[in-house]
Structures are given as structure tokens and as C-alpha cells.
Design a protein around this nucleic acid. Sequence first.
DNA 1: TAAAGTAGTAATCAATTACTTACTTTGTAG
DNA 2: CTACAAAGTAAGTAATTGATTACTACTTTA
Lengths: 201, 201
Amino acid sequence: MSSQRKHLPADERRAATVEAVVKLAAEQNPSEITTLAIAKHMGLTQGALFRHFPSKDALFEAVMEWVAKRLLGRIDQYASSASPLAALEKMFMAHVEFVCEHPGVPRMLFGELQRAADTPAKRAVQIMIRRYSERLATLLERGKALGEVAAEVDASAAATLFIGTIQGLVMQSLLAGSVERIRAEAPGAFAIYRRGVRSAP
Amino acid sequence: MSSQRKHLPADERRAATVEAVVKLAAEQNPSEITTLAIAKHMGLTQGALFRHFPSKDALFEAVMEWVAKRLLGRIDQYASSASPLAALEKMFMAHVEFVCEHPGVPRMLFGELQRAADTPAKRAVQIMIRRYSERLATLLERGKALGEVAAEVDASAAATLFIGTIQGLVMQSLLAGSVERIRAEAPGAFAIYRRGVRSAP
DNA sequence: TAAAGTAGTAATCAATTACTTACTTTGTAG
DNA sequence: CTACAAAGTAAGTAATTGATTACTACTTTA
């Protein structure tokens, strides 16, 4: 597919390969993506991949770093908003938008997390989600200080729930077989989350 | 290794095989569980499995039916409680308890859902989760009628969020590498969910 | 424009996979 | 006690996997 010219410079080829994996993950179980499938999708031979990545694991690690950079990058924009609760909403919607654009990403994250082996890719995911959770928890604590978030809310649990809410939406989209469902249900889901953490009006 | 005697009757062997898969899924990516690993875990040769299941897919379908029966069975106990909100809490805790006893189960469900092929196992999961969601939605609507659940809550979104909350806890346990974390965080997570759906006091 | 370096090919590798087949052991009904 | 069907074994199969290698084609540059 992707009728680029052949003979790309190495860094461009690496980037193209990473994006091919992200694209394929939208339609396939990530752990079932073969190097042959990746190469075919780019109009290359399978061996060519190993000119640019020492192993499949290394390729998947690069994909995870691609994800971490893009996702956290979008999230960070809103971290310093005046109202923590408004910031959480914007982050939620930005995350949802990212997932709708790249439906393969949440599958890859979850799939990588549950691997038994301690691969570099898995570690990259762990680091990313931990960083994400920390930012959420900080935001929630700041919300408490400002009186926006109820004092009795467990910030750690609320951070977990934030990510779980998105995971639930992803699961629904897998059930329905349509990514659009996520965009449609996201506001309703966040509304409940918001009621769950905000202080009584 | 489960040192049963050899030469089990067919139905007992089938049950033992299903349970072996559930056990293995607690430590491995379900889509990476091989028939050889299953057989080894039972002290059998690999070929013996195919005396009891026509294919690996059929075995996984049997596993999903095992899960559906057990999980929905536990949930159903509480469906007809007087207070829908109390019923939701009991169901949540029962589900959490089930997941702690069988940590491989949520991995298998999610893993099966994201497969591209339309396997019987995948369909079994879809049916199970849909049924689950419907029961939650019914309970939430009943809660609205009784004034326990806020009228503005989207029951469908709330059902999605209920399942997503558990999925978030599972994700945290994968991050931390400990299942116990789920039991510890479950009450805090549900407290937020409860605040999210209940009507203002 | 010739030489040097880079990117991609095609064939092949060993390992692993789900599944099959021919044979042996075991429990049990008559 | 003994036939015999059920349960398990051992040794295969064909297909697929990630990775390697000797070679070719393209691009850049001196």
C-alpha cells in the first residue's frame, strides 16, 4: 500500500514503519502483527525491516515511544489550566480524540502490559502510564486545595478511574465494532466521572 | 502440574483443561498460550488435548462459556436487591472478587474482543458483556425510578463506566504486577462511581 | 561521471505452531 | 478374566514465524 517512493532515508523509513504498525493495530490484535504484514503494508520485503530495527521488540519499543510522545504531548497542553476540573475535562476529550484517530493504540498498550516477558516496550508503557497517573493525581490534589474536588475523594483511585473510563469506552467500541461510538459516549461518561469527583455544589 | 491421576473421564478432562487455560492466562498473554503449554501444565502430551477439543478455538470457546457462567452467576445473586445502588455495589465487589481469584479472565476477555477474526469465542464474549451491560442499565433505570440514581445520568454510559472502572483496576494491577492492589483500590474506585450516579442527597 | 555508501531484495534458516496418525495403556462391562 | 472402547503417547506433518545473508539497485558526492 502507501505508494511512497522506495529508498527512503533511514530515519524516514523508521518513522514510516512505526506509523504502519500503529495503523495495522487498528484492525488486528497487536500481538498477531507479523513483520511480514508490516512490510507488505509498506510495499517492502520483510527483511528490509531488519535493516532499520535490530529486532521486532525494538520496533515495538519505538512504537511505544511514538505513542508516549504524542499522547502525553497533547495532554500536557491542558495541565496548567486555571480550573483543575476543566483541565481534566479537556485532557479527557483530548485523549478520546487521540484514541479515535489511532484506535490501535489502546490495544497495543493493554496488549503490551499483559505480556509476561519484561520487554523494553512493556517498560516504556509502564513509564508512560505512571507519568500520566501522576499528572492526574497532582491535578486532583490541586482541585481539592481549590475546593473544586471533594476532599473525601481518593486521588489515586480517581486517577485510575479516569484511565479506566477511557478503557471502558474502548471496550464498548470493540463490542460495537465502531470507533465513532467512543466520541458519542465520551461526554456522558465524563459527566458521571465529574459528578463523582467534584465537591457538592 | 496438578498431579491428578491420568486417564480422566472425558468430561472431567475437558473441565480440567478449561481451568488450566484460566490459570495460565493469569501469568501469560492469553493469545500466546500454546497448546503445548496447556498440556504441560496438566502433565499431558500436547496431542491429548485434541482428543477432547476439535480445535484450539473450540477450547477457547469453552473457556469463555465457563467464564460467562461463573461470572454472570455471581452477579445475578444481587440483581434483585431492594436498593439498586446497594445491588450495584455488591455486584461490583463480587466482580472484583472474581477477578482477583482469576486474574487471567479480564485479559482473556479483552484479548478475545480485539481479535480480527470472528471466532466463536469472540462472539461468546460479546454476548456475555452485552448481557452484563443490559442488566446494569436495567438496574440503573430502576434506581432512577426509585430516586436513588440521578435523573440526568445516562444509563448506558453509566453501565459502560461500571465495566470500565473494573478494567481500570485491572490495568493498575498489571502496572504494579500485583493482583492484591485491585482489592485495595476497589472501594475507593466504587465510592467515586457511586457519587457519580446517585441523586444529590 | 565514476566511485562509495546506503537501502532494499530474495532466498533461506532454525524454531515454533496447531493439528494428525499409528500405536499403547487403562478401566470396566459382560 | 477378558474383550474392547476410551484415554493417552510418541512421532510425525505442513505452515508460519522472526531473523540472516549474499547480492542488487539506487542516491550522493567528489
